[in-house]
Design a protein around this nucleic acid. Structure first.
Lengths: 341, 341
DNA sequence: TGGCAATGGTAATTCGCATTATCAGCACTA
DNA sequence: TAGTGCTGATAATGCGAATTACCATTGCCA
């Protein structure tokens, strides 16, 4: 055996050692036995023997040049993929993505090279590396409409994890049905007798925010109060002032803060005030409170996003916009309103 | 512009649009202005304009076949990258890796396509894709020696996160100095007056296990007891039987379990028994106990592993084996032994 | 013995890009 | 007028593996 450890072994080397042509080596390797290529057992064995002895491995790069697919899916996150804060919101999405990728035999490329401009990454920049991957998954609370529009215009295959508004065309996504989930929990509160209810949270900006407010209004009416402020003290003031008996908090972390403030100020939850959490914490928030409300099917969203992207890439996709139901949680923070209040 | 969205854009397409040759496009892209290729500003601008308009990106695979670098680092984990269990042991490593990759402008390729055989992934398999990346980072408590040996034999650039024994040659790694950290905390206990001390944990198998036992013996002597069993009840029995006053637990999760058992059985920690944790939990273990012992500099290890790999790839690496000091924690679970015991 | 299929293989081409060698045109010089 | 040097581009080649097209030989039958 030649001691040429410096250069990689190629099919040509194998061919020379087995005294056949490179073509034959390729045919043996790919186990081709169609009409076009009949390799007698003797020759095949000779080639296989050399391959075994040398430990030859086909170069995946060269192989991919001839096929159209790379078997690589890109993952673009607007923040760090591995944030330092534990209890990370994105983690379940990624777990689902990895799970599905593993099953489909795909590798994941994290676009960590994207330059950070004013705190966020950017898809499109000077040395855009999107096309390394066959397609791309997008994660983030908000995704700039112009970047989405450009992806669509360039017909780059991608799937957004989370519903997105149109951006020069329909955006392929796998989202959570916040509208419906919120509507259901609001109906539940109304059925329990709550009449003075409020929505606390941005309610705008991100699609997920707007959707929750939409669901809230669908059940509570367009005139029900919407309190966008984030400060828990001020929020509690307003709630008490307006004699609200049940508040629907968009962000679980805010619900945790509100509950802490309420307790500190002698307001009992849920006796005096029911607090409903509309989803999961996107910010770290230590708490083992079992909120009434719902959870976002994050793992399933990640999983199905990969499936959808794969379907798009293989041309078998039919519906490109998927809304998954949220998981309602009974919890302990919603009870009928007390008469006194 | 032709609406051939089906096929990828190539330099030939750009060349046709800019009415130059493919060569010229390549030269412009690589900004070559040597004697061999002088592109006048006018031509260059014309080409660049088409590139900007089309959003063309060079195929990294094709490029990789000729150049040496791809600006992609592989990340190979023997378990899932995004495990479902929270409080994940690997997360800080990955955060460090991402951080450094971002700064160096590198993308990370997660080898999620590696097939899982008997519960673990395998580096080498039929359709090995290692070479897509410029080099690779290896994470895992244990890495099979034969896989390491093969990586070395094939001269594939890689860095292990965590010290590894030689495998047909020295393994490049960024590890934690468990020997020294363990030695120091054992010395500390001895200085406090502990005479009957024990090591609890595997102490073998993974390098990290063996190193801790090594450090323990360096300070405690070769005959100090080593209790490999994992069952906390049986462990506590043995400890009491042997009148041990300080136990050094390899795995923090085991320390948590031991402490719970001790408390349940009326054994006071640290009054009756000091418990020292030699590192962090590799398994989920909820606990806010402030153990005496040390922490593994996981984030720094990830970060430096990327730096080392980058140095290896650029040929500037001098030392290929790095041991980082662990962070000692005072904690509350080590006090001088009570006289009565 | 001509015709023709079956057998066992190989040369040539392709993928997208980078590099090398080469070439055409022009200006200036000896 | 040939010689020299410079400019601005291109044709040709190669990376490693897969594929297509093709060739050479043999055997068999009419």
């Amino acid at each position: 055996m030649p001691d040429k450890a410096t250069t990689r072994l190629t099919q040509r080397d194998i061919a020379r050692l087995a005294k056949v042509s490179q073509t034959t080596v390729s045919l043996v390797l790919n186990n081709r036995s169609d009409a076009t290529a009949r390799i007698p057992a003797e020759t095949r064995d000779r080639v296989l023997k050399v391959i075994r002895e040398t430990g030859y491995q086909a170069d995946p790069l060269a192989r991919r040049m001839l096929k159209q697919r790379n078997q690589i899916l890109g993952v673009f996150t607007y923040e760090s993929v591995f944030p330092s804060a534990s209890g990370d919101f994105y983690h379940p999405f990624l777990a689902g993505i990895e799970d599905c990728a593993e099953q489909l035999g795909l590798d994941l490329l994290l676009f960590t090279s994207a330059p950070v401009t004013s705190g966020r990454r950017q898809i499109f920049h000077e040395n855009n590396r999107l096309r390394i991957a066959d397609g791309c998954l997008l994660l983030g609370r908000q995704i700039p409409a112009d970047e989405l529009a450009r992806l669509i215009a360039e017909e780059y295959p991608f799937v957004s994890v989370g519903r997105r508004d149109d951006a020069g065309g329909p955006v392929p996504y796998v989202g959570a049905d916040y509208v419906e989930a919120t509507r259901v929990v609001v109906e539940k509160a109304l059925a329990l007798g709550h009449r003075r209810i409020a929505f606390a949270g941005p309610g705008a900006g991100a699609e997920s925010s707007a959707d929750r407010l939409l669901g809230f209004r669908a059940a509570a009416g367009a005139r029900a109060p919407w309190l966008p402020g984030a400060d828990p003290d001020a929020l509690l003031d307003t709630l008490l002032e307006q004699k609200v008996t049940a508040v629907f908090v968009e962000e679980r972390a805010d619900a945790v803060a509100l509950l802490a403030t309420a307790t500190a100020r002698g307001v009992q939850v849920p006796a005096d005030l029911s607090v409903i959490a509309l989803g999961d914490s996107t910010r770290p928030a230590e708490s083992d409170i079992d909120f009434t409300g719902f959870h976002v099917p994050r793992r399933a969203m990640g999983l199905q996003a990969v499936e959808l992207l794969e379907a798009i890439l293989s041309g078998t996709a039919t519906e490109r916009q998927l809304l998954l139901p949220c998981e309602l949680t009974d919890g302990t923070t919603l009870t009928p309103p007390s008469k006194g209040v």
